[in-house]
Amino acid sequence: MSEVFLMLVSVTGGTGFVGAHTVAAFLRAGHRVRLLVREPSGVARALAPLLPGPAPGGNADEDTFADTFGDAVEVVTGDVTDGEAVGRAVRGADAVLHAAAVYTFDSRRRASVRRTNERGAEVVLGAARAAGADPIIHVSSVAALFPAPGRVVREDTPVGRPREPYMASKAAAEAVARGHQREGAPVVITYPPALLGPHDPRLGDQTARLRDVLRGLLPVWPLGGLPLGDVRDTAALHAELLTPYGGGPARHFGPGHYLTTRRYVEVLREVTGRRLPTLFLPARAMLPAGLLADLAQRVCPWHIPAQYGAVYVCACATRVAEGASTGGVVPRPVAETVGETVRWLHANGSLSDRQAGTARGDLTPVRAS
């Protein structure tokens, strides 16, 4: 950016994976943030590992977080579907980043997915616009554009009409955001790919899926592919976009790579040094099995790693067009992202020494976005 505007940024979803890394990027750039959260106790836990502490080269822990960053972080308790709470959170903010979403293919959570993702977008974007914020960054998903009419997706690709609940909820939220853009509001849309990286506060679906592969729970994969990126690169994109915008259809893709599922497993083999025997089957042939797994998950108290949504993504995902905007952020190598994710999972006890393979070891220090 040619000029830096220090802002008060209201953030929803700031204790989630994308949100926490983005808030850390904002704070490192000197901005102040106001977080709308349902559980204030989760703020320090989500942000402390991502921010430099008082000691040179150290990391802030929960005990020192408030002392170190208290003046820069304000917390409002509430839910994104609560208009009154959202109004308090965006009042007086220079900018708003709406990252709150329920990201899961778990069939047991379909109601909360629909309510939070679609209704939350309506409430937050409407309140941010009424409050005069600029920019208003809506964190969508590249999945909101699937299935796409062509072989690639780009900024003008129409909203998708997916037959999967999570993706359909993101498509509905995308339609809300584009409606504001058509009316000239300063809404900027970003499309993160599937994301990996260290420090996932809630161990979301994508990180859990990588863990399950290394635990030997997913020996069968659908053919096809998926867009994959590093959460820190998407956070860097959001930091780049934090400047007054004005209005119009601004849309940017989260930096990442398109990987075939075969290549995804190959990267895991390269990073861990493990054989990881895997059977690949046509994605569409696996969709009925995914539906059966979803039905079983509704009554089964244990997590079933096979999910219809994950198979559906592999069946319909396409590449991002070459030259599509990523805000000038260059994506990290996939092996770096996967390696640091595996090391983090090993460090927090989610993977054994054997499961992490040669990827186990010390985490690379948090790198500024």
Rank of each mutant, 00 (worst) to 15 (best):
R129N: 11
R367F: 00
S107R: 06
E155R: 13
A72F: 01
A324S: 14
T358C: 08
V73K: 10
G273C: 13
V188K: 11
H180F: 15
T81A: 11
A208F: 02
G229I: 03
S140E: 09
T157K: 10
T326V: 08
L196Y: 06
P365D: 05
R110P: 00
L287K: 03
G323I: 11
V37C: 03
V176W: 12
A185G: 04
T261K: 06
G150V: 05
R178T: 04
L242I: 08
L196H: 00
L223N: 04
V176R: 03
G57M: 05
G132Y: 04
D233S: 09
V220S: 06
A310C: 01
T278N: 06
V96L: 01
A121S: 10
R211S: 11
V188F: 06
A359E: 06
T15C: 09
R215C: 11
G14H: 04
G120C: 07
L196T: 07
V342L: 12
T207H: 07
P186S: 10
A24K: 10
F26E: 11
L214A: 02
H199T: 08
L241W: 01
H303G: 04
Y308E: 07
R45T: 14
L27W: 04
V18I: 15
D212Y: 04
L223Q: 14
H31S: 05
S169A: 14
V23M: 06
A236G: 09
V153C: 02
W344A: 10
T81V: 15
F253R: 14
Q297V: 05
A66W: 10
F69M: 08
G57R: 13
V73D: 06
D94V: 07
V11I: 13
V102A: 13
L6V: 12
W221K: 04
Y166W: 07
A368T: 12
Q355L: 09
Y103T: 15
V4Q: 12
G290H: 02
E122Q: 14
L242E: 05
L287I: 07
G290I: 05
A55G: 01
L295G: 14
G53S: 06
T22W: 01
A95I: 06
V123L: 09
A185L: 03
D205G: 10
V113H: 01
L363F: 05
V313S: 07
R110A: 11
H252D: 01
Y166C: 11
F26H: 12
V334Q: 03
V86P: 02
A48R: 08
A296H: 00
A289M: 12
R269M: 06
V271F: 08
